[in-house]
Every structure is written in C-alpha cells, then in structure tokens.
Design a protein around this nucleic acid. Structure first.
Lengths: 195, 195
DNA sequence: AAATTTATTGAATACAAATTCAATAAAACT
DNA sequence: AGTTTTATTGAATTTGTATTCAATAAATTT
C-alpha cells in the first residue's frame, strides 16, 4: 500500500469514528482526544490529518451532501408515488445494513438546524432534494395520484418527516422501519383534505 | 410588585431569551454573556438566578416536558383520526401565535437526540406522548379507520414526522403549516399497505 | 547510506468561556 | 436610623480542551 493510500485509509477511519461520536455524544461533547482514541492514534496526530475539529465536521457534511445527490435521479416511466415509495424502501434497507447512513442523516439535520459552525452549515445547504422532489410531486398532482397543494410545502413536509423518522431510527437501532407507503400517504389523493 | 414576583419575572425573562438563543445558535454556541445581554443584565448576575448554564437548559426542558402533557387528554367520543387531526391543527395554530413553541420543540428534539448534558436528557425523557398516542392508534385500528401494523411504531413515526415538520417550521418562520390531514394520513387505512 | 520527507508522540501553550468573588447599591425589615 | 437581606456589577480565577511544538522514528528518495 502506497503512502497516499495509507493516508486516505487513515482519514476515512478518522472520519467514520468522528461521525459516530458526533452523533452519539454531539459535536461539542466529542473531544478531539476521543476521536483520536477511537481511531487509535495520539491526539497530536489528528492534526496531521485534519487541520481542525471543524474541518473534520465540514468534511463529513460535504460527504453527506454528496450522498443525497443520489436521491431523485432518473425515474424512467415509474409513477411518482411508486418511485418515492421505492426510493424510501431502498434507503431504509440500505441504512439498516450501513448504520452510518442514519448517523449521517442525524448529523446533516443537526448541522442544518443550528448550533454548528458556520462553514459546516454552508456545506449542508448544497442539497436540493426538496426542490427536486417538489417537481416530482407536481407531476403526481397532474396525474391525480397526489392531492392538491403547494408542492414545495408538501415536499418539505415529506422530507422533514423522513428526517424525523431517520433520526428516531438512529437513536434506536432496533426500531423497525416504517412502511414507506405510510410516509408517501402524506402526499396521496384521498388522504383527507381535497382542496 | 413583591421581591419574589420580581425574581420570577426575571427568571422567566432569562429563560425565554435562553430558549430563543439556544435554538438560534445552539446550546454550546450561546454564551452565558449572550443570554445576559439579551436579558439586559451583567454576566455575573445570571448566577444569582441560575446556578449554571446547564441548570438553565434543564429548567427549559422540564417546562417542555410539562407542556407536552396536554397532548392526548380527554377525547370524549371523537374518533381517533379526527382527534389527532384536530390536535395537530390546534398545535400548529397555537405555535404560529407563540413562536417559542417551535423553539421548544426544536430544543426538546436536540436534547433527546444527543449532544446535550446528561441531566437535561433525563428531564426530556419524562414524556410519554408516544405511548399514549399508540393507545389511540390501537382504538382506531379496531374501528378500522387506521391501517394495521405495530401501533407503537406507527406512533413513533407519527411523532417523528411531527417533530421533523415542527423543526422545519422553526427554521423558517414564514413556512406555511401543512394540513394536519396529510400527517394523519400516515396512519389511515387505505394508505397503501394493507397487511 | 546519507538526506529528505512523512508519521508519530506527549507535553507545553493558548484561549475562550463558565464560574467565583469582593465590593457596592438598593430594598426590606426592626 | 440602623441592620440585614437581596440585587447588581465587573474584574479575577479556574477549567477544559483545541491547537502547536520540539523531538523522535520510520519510510522514501537520491
């Protein structure tokens, strides 16, 4: 293994430990020394790999933002409701196998909301899932599978729900995932108000 | 105004400013001096009213836990779906008038999840809304208005969604509230899976 | 194999912010 | 009016922890 590869390995290892600890204990309650210990190195060495604790966080958020770009890609001829349902199903099952996905959701949520360094927040804003889903919802409204209403608000509520549920699942890894249909039902025609 | 009343006033004022700042900037990024400034007093005086920053937080969380007890009280003969819908409608409209309600939601969420002092987390756990709503859901399942499934999981998802949405609204005070029906649709029979 | 670059450590430093404190003013009480 | 209690301040202290640093080891290059 070349020097460069080794460094990459090490960085990845640090990042994964940091992610877990940031979510388990919170960013501010996680000491650089905790991360160092988890990654089996001295505190000082951390600064050989990352300039600062904040850079560590920002790097994680960048990864998270990158990851969400997968959402809402080519959907071929599938109807929007089926697409969203299927997307959620895959996301839940993927996350069950890769628990860091839950952690990433939690971290992104925390960062977007408040109480995190400025730079990290900026990195988290480079995510347009809500906008893209709103377009999908508009299509569904035209075809009648989704009820009427401001598509952007509907999309925000949809993702806020998903966010909340992912966070709940992140807290309790034993928790059974909901049926994706339940969540998509929020958008469907015939679900109460029909204005 | 008696001395005691004055003290209570002052404490309440401090608490409300702390709540706002904790949510706007996050607990750890809020300095005692920031709260002092907002409440128009010297930093030192804060410690006359509260033993520590942590006690301030814990007190807020206790208030929040107290507040949620309102949820799920006497529902008379109203069907569970109507009850929940109505409950959410009132909550949203109440929160629009009293923005601190949003902040309280966000704070409670942050505290329950992670990265907050131990004691505050404990205070936040004294909330059994999820369990009480699960009972309501079971009733609805018997009468057929709600679909089948583990009522506790359904309740957790329901509240996780509400939490997520309240947080979204807290971030953007301009955001229009969703129709409560959308959220209750998560639970309703005929919403996709019918196992 | 000498020289240079990279990895690693643990202790020293710097710093920010919570908390304490001594002193003063105001109020309440006798 | 004098005494005690409460309110208030701003500066001094303490503390916790991120970051730097000087020194050493290991690897890579020449």
């Amino acid at each position: 293994m070349t020097r460069k590869e080794q460094k990459e390995e090490r960085r990845k290892n640090i990042l994964m430990n940091a992610l877990r600890l940031f979510v388990e204990r919170g960013y501010y309650d996680t000491r650089i020394s905790d991360i160092a210990e988890a990654a089996q190195m001295s505190t000082g060495l951390m600064f050989h790999y990352f300039e600062s604790k904040e850079e560590l966080l920002t790097e994680l958020v960048r990864m998270g933002a990158e990851g969400t770009k997968a959402a809402g890609r080519e959907m071929g001829d599938i109807p929007p409701d089926v697409y969203l349902t299927e997307f959620l199903r895959r996301m839940f099952s993927f996350a069950k196998e890769q628990p860091w996905v839950f952690n990433m959701f939690v971290l992104m949520g925390q960062v977007r909301r408040a109480g995190m360094p400025e730079e990290a927040r900026k990195a988290a804003e480079a995510v347009d899932t809500v906008e893209r889903t709103a377009k999908l919802i508009e299509q569904g409204q035209k075809s009648g599978v989704f009820h009427k209403g401001d598509a952007l608000i509907m999309s925000r509520c949809f993702w806020a729900s998903v966010q909340g549920i992912m966070e709940e699942m992140a807290m309790d890894k034993e928790m059974k995932a909901p049926e994706p249909e339940w969540i998509v039902a929020m958008l469907k025609a015939g679900s109460g108000d029909e204005d």
